[in-house]
Amino acid sequence: MKIEVNGASHEVQAATVAGVLAELGWGEARVATALNGAFVPKAARGTMAVTEGDRLEVLAPMQGG
């Protein structure tokens, strides 16, 4: 199915947030996630379902003021 990850369109097989992260190579990365604008805690990624057209944000630590 097609979903949007960090603003770019991706074709993914996985059905959960955790699955999508693993599929895109972020399985071990220190990231924080939000699905369709709502925070998805790390512990909920394994059960949080991803469906066609969803918007997933995968954020990382970055420089800030």
Partner: peptide, 19 residues
């Protein structure tokens, strides 16, 4: 140190180690 969160584009993990 103040920090932020941005879309992961490959540099976030190294930055975290610096912090």
């Amino acid at each position: 140190a103040t920090v932020s969160l941005r879309r992961e584009a490959g540099k976030g993990q190294a930055f975290w180690q610096i912090i």
